[in-house]
Design a protein around this nucleic acid. Structure first.
Length: 732
RNA sequence: GGACGCGUAGCUCAGUUGGUUAGAGCGUUCGAUUCACAUUCGAAAGGUCACAGGUUCGAAUCCUGUCGCGUCCACCA
């Protein structure tokens, strides 16, 4: 028996233990003992963005997954946890461009496309290295041999194959539509990447012929030649739909047309509004309903077009005040309200304020009918017509995919109901380039460029979520029919934050449904966000960020893991409190000293590592001399095993963790170990007591291992156990 | 405007289908120390489970309403 230090020093243990695990090869499920006989269990890691470093949210998310995968491995599953990173297209390019400008005062225009792509890819891959080393330090049991990246060769093949199949099914089309244009990043963004930010502005009222119209954006008003009011608005009864009126406007007299449309809100302002169809989704719809002209006023850079007359060529930001000034001189400004609060659409991936524009873009049609040749989706038989929306809905509705907590299912359905076609093209270079080539009027979509002269590839790249949507199967080798794909797909459980339910979870269901006719995962367990102890988001401006690696250095990885799991309900946000991590470091030390006690006492015992359980194997009642304390602790142990197992099966990790903690400290240490001190002095009770101490400790180590892998593995080896605790059978 | 969540000890939070004196971590107070652990042990203080009704033999838990906080969706010219 080896001596144990008086205190547990994580810094001496963690790296050594992690190396032991790596050397064992058991992170790769195919290397597990009797791998072929094991039932597969798969988790695909939500790939962290290569934009930066890991934060506490990652530590939380990855700990949850590690607990589950370790538990399943011990339960005898062929447990695969597949790691990877996400190229995060627009976010990464935006970040790179920012740094490039800061460091070298250069922009994307200073480089060729190919050169610029290579620079960003290099930046991304160097970030990736940092992230991978952080993942190692968190003790995560991922299968590094299968590491994937959303923008590597194999994933490119998957992306192009997926695009081609959807294109051929007519689900991907190119069309001129109103999109969210970010003039700063010079690209479109999808509806889901818009974040509305409250902002205070001046609210201008103008005299528009006989009408009072209001706006915060006078610079869009040049093209306004339609005035819209509700058909039932009594104030405007005398005006007829289609009626023309002459009036004085910014650059002289114009002819305006009266439009009666129910989109006009009678309660708001004067009830009359002018519309700018080329730069507003709502206005665009109104214009389409009535067949109105759609005149572009602002270009891609936010500069006014010739329609603005003397203001043409001026940036909208600058033009606003000048326009108001001109209107004021003409006596057309009736009122200016200050501090008008309204929402502005912004690009949440580090871009600017969204300017709706009509552009030629690529879309995924979510309502178009198609036929699934092979379908494992319940509610959609093979050969039957369906839509992508239907796939997303039916898989969850039927319970084939379960979402936990359940309340998110409602939110998910609501999102599907309001879903519009997904704009997948981006005008940036960092991403998967659209696999479509043009030559004159010819168009060619394929995995590789077409043969022959004069073909030019589409310059757009794909929305990053397009490649993320393939993640569960592109990581397993799809489109090739690999053994991995057959063995490990559909994956067992997906564990993302609730904030990417739409971006990602829904898109994976869509992609897997169409391309494989199957679900990507059986279960979704959503977790909340990690906030600071006051419940605020971690943010740069508040400077309240906590680096997970600082915590692991200070208190140990086990302590951080346990602290994150301990006080968190499913789907709820977690308030991060350093004090709790400290408390869990104490717990690790407590366990360490419990082990010291058991070891020093079993040192001279006739029983060694091969402790048997003679008294309890069958017929507990008739067993050898046993005290109430023994019965009590072993009964409780049995019930803890059952309960912890049940809670882990149902992804109630926090409850499982609390039960083990409670049992270890306040039952085993506080009660039984105290009682054992007297029992060990009694010859008749000696062996029984040793047995109970030893058996209980070993079982605790097994139960606790998924949560606190390092300290448990270390003690396990000090106890002289041969196998790694990592793959020891889960207690029953 | 629509939907959802939360409000439990000083602080941060658990509390699975309603069931005995409501729990944890940290903090506070008092006491203990050669015997596994001061990163410890024992004890204590501290909660009308936001509020008001209702269902029930019984409600922190279910229902209705009120107040406060938060999130998501839609978006107003």
């Amino acid at each position: 028996m080896k001596e144990l230090e008086k205190t547990y020093d994580h810094s001496k243990v963690e790296q050594k233990i992690y190396q032991k695990w790596l050397d064992s090869g058991y992170f790769n499920p195919d290397m597990l003992p009797n791998a072929k006989d094991r039932e597969p269990f798969t988790i695909a890691l939500p790939p962290p963005n290569v934009t930066g470093v890991l934060h506490m949210g990652h530590a939380f998310e990855d700990t949850i997954q590690d607990v589950i995968i370790r538990y399943q491995r011990m339960r005898g599953r062929r447990a695969l946890w597949l790691p990877g990173t996400d190229h995060a297209a627009i976010a990464t390019q935006a970040k790179f461009e920012k740094e490039l400008y800061k460091k070298e005062k250069k922009s994307r225009h200073d480089f060729s496309r190919e050169e610029f792509f290579r620079m960003i890819q290099k930046f991304a891959l160097s970030n990736q290295q940092g992230i991978l080393s952080q993942l190692h330090k968190l003790g995560l049991s991922m299968d590094w041999s299968r590491l994937a990246f959303t923008l590597d060769k194999q994933r490119e093949k998957a992306v192009r194959t997926a695009f081609k199949k959807m294109y051929e099914a007519g689900l991907i089309y190119r069309g001129k539509r109103m999109v969210n244009w970010d003039p700063k990043a010079q690209t479109t963004v999808s509806d889901d990447e818009i974040e509305y930010v409250e902002q205070k502005d001046l609210f201008y009222h103008f005299k528009y012929g006989p009408f009072d119209i209001a706006t915060v954006r006078p610079e869009t008003k040049f093209g306004d030649k339609y005035v819209v009011m509700h058909p039932k608005d009594k104030r405007y009864k005398k005006y007829k739909h289609g009626q023309k009126i002459e009036l004085e406007w910014i650059n002289g007299p114009i002819t305006a047309t009266i439009i009666k449309d129910e989109a006009a809100d009678m309660e708001f302002g004067s009830g009359a509004m002018t519309i700018t169809p080329a730069h507003s989704a709502i206005d665009f719809e109104i214009a389409q309903r009535h067949g109105l002209d759609i005149d572009r006023v602002i270009d891609d850079r936010g500069v006014l077009l010739p329609i603005a007359g003397e203001f043409a060529g001026i940036h909208i930001k600058k033009a606003r005040l000048e326009i108001v000034e001109k209107l004021r001189k003409k006596g057309l400004v009736t009122k200016i309200e200050e501090n008008y609060v309204h929402n502005v659409a912004t690009n949440m991936r580090g871009g600017g304020i969204i300017e709706p524009q009509i552009k030629l873009q690529w879309f995924i049609d979510v309502n178009k009918k198609f036929t699934l040749k092979n379908s494992k989706i319940s509610g959609i038989p093979a050969g039957e017509k369906t839509t992508l929306k239907d796939v997303m809905r039916k898989t969850v509705e039927s319970g084939q995919i379960k979402i936990m907590p359940e309340r998110f299912e409602k939110i998910y359905f609501h999102w599907i109901d309001n879903l519009r076609d997904w704009c997948i093209s981006r005008q940036i270079v960092y991403g998967h380039r659209i696999p479509v080539w043009y030559r004159g009027d010819e168009i060619h979509c394929d995995i590789n460029s077409p043969k022959g002269e004069g073909w030019l590839q589409d310059t757009d790249t794909l929305d990053t979520w397009f490649s993320s949507g393939l993640w569960t199967f592109s990581t397993l080798g799809w489109p090739d029919e690999t053994a991995d794909l057959k063995t490990y797909h559909p994956t067992s459980v997906m564990i993302p934050g609730y904030e990417i339910l739409f971006f990602w979870v829904a898109r994976m269901i869509l992609m897997s449904g169409f391309l494989l006719g199957d679900i990507p995962f059986r279960q979704v367990v959503l977790h909340g966000m990690v906030r600071d102890k006051l419940g605020r988001k971690f943010s740069k401006s508040l400077d309240n960020g906590v680096d997970p690696l600082d915590m692991t250095a200070k208190y140990g990885t086990d302590a951080l893991r346990m602290a994150l799991i301990f006080g968190s309900g499913p789907g709820n946000d977690v308030a991060f409190d350093e004090q709790r991590v400290k408390g869990m470091k104490h717990f690790a030390n407590k366990l360490w000293n419990i082990s010291r006690y058991v070891m020093t006492n079993t040192e001279n015992a006739p029983v060694g590592a091969g402790f048997s359980r003679p008294q309890y194997d069958d017929g507990r009642a008739s067993a050898a001399p046993t005290t109430d304390a023994d019965k009590n602790i072993l009964d409780k142990l049995d019930s803890v095993i059952k309960s912890v197992t049940n809670n882990l099966e149902n992804y109630r990790l926090h409850e499982a963790a609390q039960e083990i903690y409670q049992f270890t400290w306040h039952e085993f240490a506080d009660v039984y170990i105290e009682a054992s001190k007297n029992q060990l002095k009694d010859e008749k009770l000696f062996e029984q007591t040793l047995y109970t101490l030893h058996f209980t400790l070993l079982t605790i180590l097994k139960l606790l291992h998924p949560f606190m892998p390092f300290v448990t593995e270390e003690i396990w080896s000090k106890l002289g156990q041969k196998d790694l605790l990592l793959i020891v059978e889960w207690p029953k």
